[in-house]
Computed example of a mutant assay.
Amino acid sequence: MPIAKKTLVSAAVLVALAATALWFLNPPATTRQAAHTAVPVRVVKVLQQDVPRYASGIGSVLSLHSVVIRTQVDGILTRLLVKEGQLVKVGDLLATIDDRTIRANLDQARAQLAQNQAQLQVAQVNLKRYKLLTVDDGISKQTYDQQLALVNQLAATVQGNQAAIDAAQVQLSYTQIRSPVSGRVGIRTVDEGNFLRMSDAQGLFSVTQIDPIAVEFSLPQQMLPTLQQLIRAQDPAAVKAYLGADGNNPDTLLGNGHLSLIDNQINAGTGTIRAKAEFDNAQQKLWPGQLVTVKIQTALEQGALTVPPTVVQRGLDQHFVFRVNGQQVESVPVQVLYQDSGLNIISGVQAGDVLVSDGQSRLKPGTQVQVLGDPLPVVQAAQVQP
């Protein structure tokens, strides 16, 4: 064989070997894709459970009774018997005012009453004597009539003296300031020794009831039929109050209460209706003036099919979910019957169906999937809190 021909054959063999090595080192894209067609996803199962439905709104905490303590008589504040922040009960003595002048007026009124009562007694004795003398014309009828008028005049005077005593006793009672409600004493504005006047609008301090307490909130006017049904129910509707805007975090729960009333008219400017709920507040987590998120239970959905919110996808004209069928997924249209930040109630699937909860962006009907590990912790969040 000529040398030139051998060289050509050797070159061809080398080219073929190089091409084969290059093919193994860089396989075609179709071969690489075939090895990685399964899309990794995380899944959850559809749960069937009883789910309470809630309506949410922003509310403010209100005291059921809040009183500014003011004096009803002018005088010097002699004693303050409570401290700021102290809890008091109805009838507890809060403060005293100098009562010497009022006691003197009371003693004077009592003395005047005793004097007039003595005069009335004498006039009544004379009236009896005159009445006997008129039988045999011992005195004139005019004298008897004058004595009868004197008795009536003195009786009226005695009644006036008794009224003056009652008024003085009322004024004397005002010198002892007692709490009209049970609650917490606020910041005081005066100290012992100050001269108090009835015209002082600021008052001494306030007493605000803390337990129980109320929360006032507003809901859309479309909720009126539901609220009317709840207010007529035998068992009061449950209401929860949360700190801030997070109405699902148990750590922010401030109290459990019940719906107590709805307002008698709708606010035409905002299209909302006000309602009020009452809470037991022994731990004093709710405070007057505080802003809270209110959740009121409007219904109980029994045997509802629930999934985490991340499962449901929004299409052009409807919602859908990806259901795992073997090694592939299929698109299933669903209806969202109820939703909140913790779970969605849907229809169109069955309890126990395995649905994709993470990784939907790379899916389409028929895509092969690879389930990664156990279901996400979000499945636990979808469980209804007791």
Rank of each mutant, 00 (worst) to 15 (best):
Q229P: 06
M223C: 07
K6R: 15
K89H: 12
G57N: 03
V384E: 02
L113D: 11
T272K: 11
L316P: 11
R110H: 08
L120D: 07
V379W: 07
L87D: 13
I97M: 00
A164M: 07
Q108C: 04
Q368H: 14
A237T: 01
I231E: 06
L150G: 08
A168C: 08
I165M: 11
A299C: 08
I213M: 06
S140F: 04
V67G: 05
L80S: 05
D211K: 04
T175K: 01
Q121P: 06
L62H: 14
P40S: 05
V312N: 03
S56A: 14
K5D: 13
S140P: 04
L64C: 05
T310R: 08
G366L: 05
K128A: 15
V41M: 05
D317K: 14
Y242C: 01
L64Q: 15
R110A: 09
A156E: 12
A201V: 10
T71I: 01
T270G: 04
T37G: 08
A4W: 10
A164I: 02
A109I: 01
Q229D: 13
L343T: 02
M223I: 07
A275L: 10
N344R: 12
I345T: 05
L254G: 00
Q380S: 11
I97H: 00
V324G: 00
A245Q: 12
L120K: 09
Q121T: 14
L230D: 01
G269H: 11
V292G: 02
K364D: 13
Q318Y: 10
S66A: 13
F24G: 09
T96M: 00
G203Q: 02
A12K: 07
V307N: 00
I210W: 08
L148G: 09
Q313P: 03
I345L: 05
D358H: 14
Q115F: 12
Q383F: 07
M198V: 15
Q153M: 11
Q290C: 08
Q222P: 06
F322H: 01
S173G: 04
I262R: 06
E192A: 10
G342M: 14
G203D: 03
K276W: 10
T306R: 02
S179E: 02
V44Y: 01
D166P: 03
L120T: 09
V329H: 00
H319N: 13
G59I: 03
T226G: 06
R129F: 09
A351Y: 07
P28C: 06
L253A: 04
V44Q: 04
V312K: 04
Q171T: 01
K128Q: 14
A167K: 13
S199G: 05
D340I: 03
K295N: 09
A299V: 07
L363V: 03
T306M: 02
R188Y: 08
